[in-house]
């Protein structure tokens, strides 16, 4: 008996490793200079799905919403062991807040069809909101288990999972289909060399078109044939627009987002007056004395 597991992932700018090059002279971050990466906790979600695939047998479908180049994280997931990739991409999705994002993903899940589990990383490092998982669960009327560390048991219609709570953990039993958000409690496997050789060639339709445009290859019939070829070899990444996913255009992107950004301020390193203390016995003694006098210490 085999399960279907959907893993929703996100390509994010690497906000955690901001090096000197990504800083502008005024001390603010140059977002364009940040590399795009696989959101870390989404890798944990994928790893959990792949473990379940090994333990219980499952088809792992990885979906993402993003610009066309977000197909990169889907290729990455295929190289690690996922079976299928779906890229949800459409200009109308741009500017989505978490509510509009969860709506678009719910349309994507419905189009994928039958599934037993949906896994998401707890949160993405660009926004750190942790909202899309629970909102997606609500949109699909699924029960949710947040902060999952491990799955104890999976059977048809039921899952038992261990999850983190403040100051401890819980073991919960929940009917499937269900949505789980996953925390960094496992070690995501690297890409398998054998799979890289194969899946680096995986493409979406627009990538295929672009690929052939570069080669001055414009025969439409040949393109269709090539697409069929990719599908046969399981190298075709699905690419769905808002219409493909039957999404109500009023509910996606900026239009479908109740929250508006009023203003953005860059955080500039505050230039505090810093007093250098010599690392000597006398220097440190003077410092401690100063702190006692101003009642910081003692």
């Amino acid at each position: 008996m085999s399960y279907t597991i959907i893993v929703f992932v996100k390509q994010v700018p690497d906000t955690q490793n901001i090096t000197g090059q990504a800083m502008k002279p005024d001390g603010t971050v140059n977002r364009a200079a940040l590399p795009a990466i696989f959101n870390p906790e989404d890798l944990n979600a994928l790893e959990l799905a792949l473990e379940l695939k090994e333990r219980f047998g499952a088809k792992v479908v990885v979906g993402t919403m993003g610009p066309p180049n977000a197909a990169e994280v889907l290729r990455d997931a295929l190289c690690r062991g996922a079976d299928e990739g779906v890229l949800l991409t459409d200009r109308s999705f741009a500017g989505a807040d978490t509510l509009a994002t969860s709506y678009a993903l719910s349309c994507c899940a419905k189009k994928i069809g039958k599934y037993d589990l949906i896994l998401c990383g707890r949160q993405a490092i660009d926004g750190d909101t942790a909202q899309v998982g629970p909102q997606l669960a609500e949109k699909l009327k699924l029960p949710q288990i947040s902060y999952v560390e491990e799955v104890k048991e999976l059977s048809k219609g039921k899952i038992i999972a261990k999850r983190a709570i403040e100051g401890g953990y819980e073991v919960l039993e929940c009917p499937t289909p269900a949505l789980l958000t996953v925390i960094d409690a496992n070690e995501p496997r690297p890409k398998a060399v054998r799979r890289i050789m194969k899946y680096k060639k995986a493409m979406t339709r627009s990538e295929l078109v672009k690929f052939h445009a570069n080669a001055n290859y414009t025969d439409a019939e040949a393109l269709v044939e090539e697409e069929e070829n990719l599908k046969k070899r399981n190298l075709f990444i699905h690419e769905w627009s808002a219409t493909d996913a039957s999404a109500d255009i009023e509910r996606v992107g900026l239009k479908g987002s109740p929250t508006k950004v009023k203003k953005i301020e860059n955080v500039v390193l505050t230039a505090t007056e810093t007093k250098a203390i010599p690392p000597t016995e006398q220097g440190i003694s003077n410092l401690v004395h100063e702190l006692i006098v101003d009642h910081t210490l003692g």
């Binding site: 978490t98 629970p134 609500e138 949710q144 403040e166």
Partner: peptide, 23 residues
Amino acid sequence: ATMKGRELAPRVASEKLAGLTAD
């Protein structure tokens, strides 16, 4: 914005179609 609050608030907001800002 505790572990409970962060899983509960989005569930409520989604049903109510309300905006929600985290943290």
